[in-house]
Design a protein around this nucleic acid. Sequence first.
DNA 1: GCCTTTACCGTACAGCGGTACTATAAAAAC
DNA 2: GTTTTTATAGTACCGCTGTACGGTAAAGGC
Lengths: 207, 207
Amino acid sequence: MPKRVDHAQRRAHIADALVRVAARDGLHAVTMRAVAAEAGMSLNLVQYYFDTKAQLVHSALLHLEHQSHERWAARLESLNDPETARACLEAFVAEAVPTDEASRAFRLVWTSYAVLAMTDPELAEQPFIEGPNRLERQLTEVLARAQKAGRIAAHLDVSIEATRLLSLSHGVGTSVLVGQRSATQALEVMHYHLARLFSDPTPLEAP
Amino acid sequence: MPKRVDHAQRRAHIADALVRVAARDGLHAVTMRAVAAEAGMSLNLVQYYFDTKAQLVHSALLHLEHQSHERWAARLESLNDPETARACLEAFVAEAVPTDEASRAFRLVWTSYAVLAMTDPELAEQPFIEGPNRLERQLTEVLARAQKAGRIAAHLDVSIEATRLLSLSHGVGTSVLVGQRSATQALEVMHYHLARLFSDPTPLEAP
DNA sequence: GCCTTTACCGTACAGCGGTACTATAAAAAC
DNA sequence: GTTTTTATAGTACCGCTGTACGGTAAAGGC
């Protein structure tokens, strides 16, 4: 069996296992042994691919961000009319709100890491500051294009609108995860937000 | 020294210590010993007032919610013109965004608990569902009054607006805590949101 | 064909964390 | 004044967790 093995793939496999454990039992339940069991390998192998737990945890975070990136990029590419800002923002909302189990797991683990980062600043640097900033810039661009096209009001600050969109989605996402709201209700709120953004005077669907 | 002692006060003292530890080092760093040290008492006393750690953690959460309640009520009462919805919502924003150290600590610990609750549903019940729901109802009432008074547009859904306010404040609050944004920027976003709510056509302050 | 490297295993060790047990003075009860 | 309760202390135990150490068999290099 000891033939040559793809380290990157093994590490990804382990990181995935960590994310599954964290999503199921919480990040506090992530232990070397639990991750090893979830990955179907021995404790020692986890140690073999990640010298220390800190490295493992950190790598899993980067892995998570990378995955999120790919999901987002894939969804953007699968848009039939990627030109319209509305479709783009709808896609963002669909991606951001924890509807299916996968996105629920992702957002749960991500938020867990965010809480960790609040008291461990060096963990935060890249993923929690640069990541969201990049997303905000993307959204800002989309909004700016829509504004130039006259689709959203000229007096709006597209940069703040991007922040508002991102922060609101994080907020409702959290409320879904703690069980205060259903994913459907969250989507309703986000669609309402988009409707207001596009100055849609239609208040609500008829009862 | 063993004279009669106010248990409720002792428990509150310990809960405060727990919150301080959690705010400084994270909820994962909260141990019986750490709390005891922070509270300036022996490990055994903490055990004496809270039989088990689960009880301690749960009690501290209730304590935190109670404190938050009182802070919010106090701020509402200190309003000079509590009738106007705008003032009320400004107060909400000022309370919700982690500006000073106290509110930063509160929001950090609260969010930590929220993450715990995501994988421990019985922890969530009262504080994370009923708490925010109550706040949302309050905000909804305020908005409904403002709407009847003609201060905000008639076609808005005051209930969703309340949700939007709360969720947005949580979202930007989190972004402040992870260091992505300053509290000032967060306040800017919230004020922008209020301005849009009140259909204030003024886009931004002049540069 | 030999030796090094690589992928893996089992186990052990040390530290920490929650909990339990025993003790002890001061107050309260009677 | 004795007895019981109450608030406190110290300490010990056990399980879990991260990490380290020693071993092993297959593959690859030369």
